[in-house]
Design a protein around this nucleic acid. Sequence first.
DNA 1: ATAAAAATTTAGACTAACCTAAATTTTTAG
DNA 2: CTAAAAATTTAGGTTAGTCTAAATTTTTAT
Lengths: 221, 221
Amino acid sequence: MQSFTEENYLKTIYYLATRQQGEVSTNALAEMTATKAASVTDMLRKLADKQLIHYKKYQGVRLTEEGERLALQIIRRHRLWEVFLVDKLGFRWDQVHEMAEELEHIRSEELVERLDTFLGHPQFDPHGDPIPTPAGQMPETGYQKLSEMVAGEPVQLMGVLEHSTEFLQHLDRSNLTLGCTVVIREVNTFDRSVQVQLVGGQTVFISYEVAKNLLVNQPAG
Amino acid sequence: MQSFTEENYLKTIYYLATRQQGEVSTNALAEMTATKAASVTDMLRKLADKQLIHYKKYQGVRLTEEGERLALQIIRRHRLWEVFLVDKLGFRWDQVHEMAEELEHIRSEELVERLDTFLGHPQFDPHGDPIPTPAGQMPETGYQKLSEMVAGEPVQLMGVLEHSTEFLQHLDRSNLTLGCTVVIREVNTFDRSVQVQLVGGQTVFISYEVAKNLLVNQPAG
DNA sequence: ATAAAAATTTAGACTAACCTAAATTTTTAG
DNA sequence: CTAAAAATTTAGGTTAGTCTAAATTTTTAT
Ligand SMILES: [Mn+2]
Ligand SMILES: [Mn+2]
Ligand SMILES: [Mn+2]
Ligand SMILES: [Mn+2]
């Protein structure tokens, strides 16, 4: 049985590990959890004692199998609750993250499985993130960043890498909705901004900062 | 902003205050919260500092208006989540209390009001307990204990005073469901047990221990 | 009315999760 | 290959919420 805090560390270690190779550093964790490095060290020793992470002093940290299973369980709960808040209660996709941060810690296997059934076994959360399986597997998506695509291709907007209210509302104002198909008209070599055309014909300018955080796939392949 | 622990104390003070006259005692709180009297004293000083209770050393405790408002807000959340778990997720009425104990602390005004709308503004939780208003008023029910009724009257089973799994499952096995109408056939003067007849004709024997925890009203009046 | 019993508070300590400042180890740059 | 910089850990504290044991106040019973 883990505390809220321990669960949040596991989730954060998972998150950072998927965005880099090798071990996760103490400083990176301190920044993400908005605490100090000394506090992180304390917690790492505790999680290592519980066999949830591999930890050698000064060498960074990596989840054990059990630690990863727990992290994915928490992410599963987070994403299912987000689906509930959007699909059932009518919240917007930019409003749900903070509530899900609390709901993800409600501990009941049966609750989360019944919620999953109630929601119709969704595969993705409102931000396009895949929902881990009950057994603790993260589905592969094969999505690519819009910022890495070349002009000419039609792509479908599938997910976001940034979940802040500001970013999501910016997409709403640009008429960029998850699932929509766009054709890449031009990639500006100077600032790496992208110009895309929506199915309706509207042209949207997307800065590199934004394109970097948009996940797409190619409907053809 | 209160902690989980402070919220639980407020709720417990409210609960004990409605079941007796006068102030709530330190020992009663210690028993209900499964802590020790010394710990309760610490917390009472803290809640008094925050003006959530009236507290004079050795004299017991009473909620302030603000304290009562908060207590009722937490009870409102608890009962709405219980309705959600039973009506939407299909849990039985004897399974939901522990989960609601956690869910009641999720802090978002908008969440609870959207949940209320989603559930169709229910007036009662799965145990027949009235749901406080958003403004923090506890609706009056006028229900009476089955143990105080006399033979001959038809009554409707409206609520329970005991929420344990064992008690609720006992009612299920006795075919006593909320909302059902029964006629009181006999009240045994020796052990105060009650014999009632269901609409289908079945006769059920109810011990005083059980009858004391059943709330009914008289359909006529 | 007073002594014993019960209830309550105070004193002093513990744990989890955090902090700052100092010490240590690793990395980087000349 | 070393010295400075950066990262990390250790040392020593803090706060919330809990505990036990001792002191104090209130209640009860002769
Ligand atoms: Mn989220
Ligand atoms: Mn999400
Ligand atoms: Mn309950
Ligand atoms: Mn209830």
